[in-house]
Write a protein that binds this DNA or RNA. Sequence first.
DNA 1: TCATATTAATCGGAAATACCAATATATTAT
DNA 2: ATAATATATTGGTATTTCCGATTAATATGA
Lengths: 295, 295
Amino acid sequence: MRFTLRQLQVFLATAHHQNISRAAESLAMSQSAASGALSDLESRYNAQLFDRVGKRLQLNAQGYALRPLAESLMDEANEVEAVLEQRGIAGKLKVGATLTIGNYIAIPIIARFKQEFPDVDLRMHVANTEHIASEVLQFDMDIGLIEGEYSHPDLLVEPWQDDELQVFCSPNHPFASLASLDDKQLKSVPWILREQGSGTRQTFDRAMHGLLNDLDIHLEFEHTEAIKRAVEAGLGLGCLSRITLADAFKRGSLVPLDVKHRDMGRQFYFVTHKKKFQSRALLSWLETCRQLSDS
Amino acid sequence: MRFTLRQLQVFLATAHHQNISRAAESLAMSQSAASGALSDLESRYNAQLFDRVGKRLQLNAQGYALRPLAESLMDEANEVEAVLEQRGIAGKLKVGATLTIGNYIAIPIIARFKQEFPDVDLRMHVANTEHIASEVLQFDMDIGLIEGEYSHPDLLVEPWQDDELQVFCSPNHPFASLASLDDKQLKSVPWILREQGSGTRQTFDRAMHGLLNDLDIHLEFEHTEAIKRAVEAGLGLGCLSRITLADAFKRGSLVPLDVKHRDMGRQFYFVTHKKKFQSRALLSWLETCRQLSDS
DNA sequence: TCATATTAATCGGAAATACCAATATATTAT
DNA sequence: ATAATATATTGGTATTTCCGATTAATATGA
């Protein structure tokens, strides 16, 4: 073995920041040491990991090939260190989730996980599917919990649990007492929906296929609470994941509506990087997720 | 990261040899350096990896927990180095196989594999199922190809391909012309079989369940060729994997016999260590195995 | 366009580390 | 008890790592 873990750390930090100085800073070492470590790694193997265009460090093909392996190696080195330090399951775990999942489903999971594994430094970041996928790809996030379908050669996308959208209105709405709605009725009223690009909207659009151009999309919000309040105020019909509506239905502040011949089903997925080492913290997180969605 | 790859190498070599001096020798370093590296690793983390009983170094609980992770880490470090050196798929691959598999099935696989991946240093070691499993457990072997069922919490045993045993006799034997044999006939003649403990014998015993005590086991050999020659000489009936008999049947030097109500089916398995890093060489080997057993 | 800021690479020296040979110490075998 | 075998320790040397300072090259902005 003619490289050191330190050199790999420098390589990874540099790939991350695309900047030696900030990489050095993040590793609490001098810029010269980082520069030296990197060029040492390269010259030892007669390899170019970065293309130096001016003072810019651009990861090249070989560096690109190295990155996932190096990342995985460092994760594993952390596990080794955990055993050496006789720590239990500990470490950092960066989880990304979409709005619906992060605000509703993830909350009880986080509670349970923190209780079972208090030594894991868990960070949850809420963003849209695409953003989460790209962070997982960049190794900036350990796992993503997403709604929309997403596929990429380097990503492992695993179905996790089923979900269904639910059309709803205020109790005072004329539709509130109807047994079910047909296409004509759907076209006759204003809608209040999540914005384009969200997983919820994606599913809605698919479910309303063929009808989409005729629908009156009155308002778009980026948050489920805003939509619920707008619908409550009688501004129109809404369509959101059942999970976000359970409370409102129980209280009677909103009313579920049955829609004919429209499939509102969808799935939530785990998304991870294929080349990433599966740390014990990550495996425990997955385990906790699965346990709580079975019950 | 407060440990080095070198220290981990020393740890692993010591765990392997249970002896610092030979570990040092295998790493081409002095005994004192190895001793120093190991005690450095231990003192840095205030950890005991080995119990020093007299001059014996006995891996203890913590060391035992560390070993699979460390082993996996080093394997992955080798992959990293392969990328740095811009090698293709290369490295060492130690394959263990039982007699039947090693001498018959593995030959064409090895030929194909060497042709496709000439840079992999492939070593095949033939031994019985139990021995192979224990070497895989000790990380002395990357993968085992076994016949018998075998289970262990740290081992991953994956079904690979089907096989069937075949009863056979010499062309001059009175049974040669019979359409099929019943239990009474099976009991009336001497048998020439593989020895107790072999996978082939294990399957035979299971197939002959209820009849076993009444069978006349005339001879036991450790090699299939010996059994075939003895049966050819008219010394009795044999029972071996079909694969080892195809040639003899084609030449007419041996004759297959049909046996009623006896299930001679069995399976071959891949066996690997759960915690082991799957190197590209190993994955390629598995791929080659699967390709050739499909066709 | 020219000055200023930013950044990567390089150099010299200090500190830390890895290594070896020799030696001391401990255990097993005869 | 003695020889043989192993591990740990010590002292000394070579190597490596790192920092601060400097230099060279590139962006930024007036």
